[in-house]
Simulated scan of single mutants.
Amino acid sequence: MAPYRPTTGLRRRAVTLGFATLFAAVAAAPPAFPATTGTHPAHVAGTCLDDVHVLAHFDRVAGQVAESIAPEPGGSAVIGMIRARQVVRVALDGAVQLLATMPLPPGGGTTTPIVGTPNVTGVARSDGGDVYFLYSSGQGGLTGIWQLRPSGESRLVVPLPADTFPNALVIDGKQHRFLITDSAGGRIWQAPLSGGEASVWSADPALAPAGFIGANGLKIHDGAVWATNSDRGTIVRIPVTQDGGSGRAEVRATGLEGIDDFDFTGRSTEILAAINESSKLVRVSADGAQETLLDAKNGMQGTTAVVVRGNQVYLTNGANLAGDDPNLMLAQLRRC
């Protein structure tokens, strides 16, 4: 992990302990799972979230720090678990099914960039039902995009360099490729959906880290690739050129320190942003104006990911820097 200039108490805590030590301390703490979570309506500038509730609690002692979400038809969701190196499925009744656990690399993965421990990060699901996920291990031959096969086995389909920290994964069906953020290198990689060699799609300076985590969340929208930069607290838009290449990045929102994932609400370029560091879900309007929809009072704890599917909003809380209850939450999105 590169030296970092902390600006908040949470970042000072992360740097002082180191992420590996911090995750170990989190895992050692006893779980505190409430039996139920009440409804918390939130109303901001024409966007409302209703019926906010926890669908599933995860096993913190086992390192199930929820990181990413891939919804499935029927309402279930595939979730990537950072420190447990797992992929799980959560059914609509809250049942959690283990799909895959990645092996520890030789040496335990202490060379993994940024965190010094191996991590399963982004997950994605193709229209045909194939499940893919990212593994960052600090080792060549293990780091990259993995496919979960129907047999339950996993196979590496796109290897990435050992010094990358692949974080978010999306399937770009129009261009028949994967896109992957690299939080350590501040880049977006691309690779064919059929598998094989990856190449850098964009290394725009707007994606670069400022000492810790750069490019993080990733979506395709409005003829462009959009990404967050956690260190810089920004959301950037990179236009896709006619030949599928990358244009120059444009910063579309600032002041979102510690941002992780995000998604579009379906209302122009309005965004819901998961702010990991301050445990918030923030609405970002098309002009960059921001309002907090949910925070710690509504159960946000180290919020890592948000995905919108129609009127359904999926949220994961990793509880890695704040809180003690990693979970998957659901909410209803409506206009008001």
Rank of each mutant, 00 (worst) to 15 (best):
P159G: 02
S126A: 06
P161W: 10
I171Y: 02
S137G: 05
L156A: 12
L134E: 11
A162N: 01
P159K: 03
G173T: 04
S126H: 00
L169K: 08
K174N: 06
V157K: 01
S136I: 01
F133C: 13
F178H: 03
G152D: 12
D130L: 12
H176A: 05
W146D: 02
D172Y: 05
Q147M: 01
Y135P: 00
L156F: 10
A168H: 04
S136Q: 13
S126Y: 04
T164W: 08
P161Y: 07
R155W: 14
S136E: 05
R125Q: 13
G173A: 10
L156N: 11
A168L: 09
D172N: 05
L142C: 03
G140Y: 14
L142V: 02
S137K: 15
S151C: 07
E153G: 08
T143N: 07
L148V: 04
F165P: 01
R149D: 14
I171L: 08
S126P: 00
R149Y: 06
Q147R: 02
N167V: 06
L160S: 11
Y135T: 03
A124G: 07
G173L: 07
S154H: 10
P161A: 13
N167M: 04
V170D: 01
K174A: 09
G152A: 13
A162Q: 07
L179Q: 05
V123H: 00
N167A: 04
L142R: 09
D127S: 12
P166R: 13
G152Y: 10
L160Q: 08
Y135R: 13
V123Y: 02
G141R: 03
L134T: 08
F178G: 01
A124K: 03
P166Q: 13
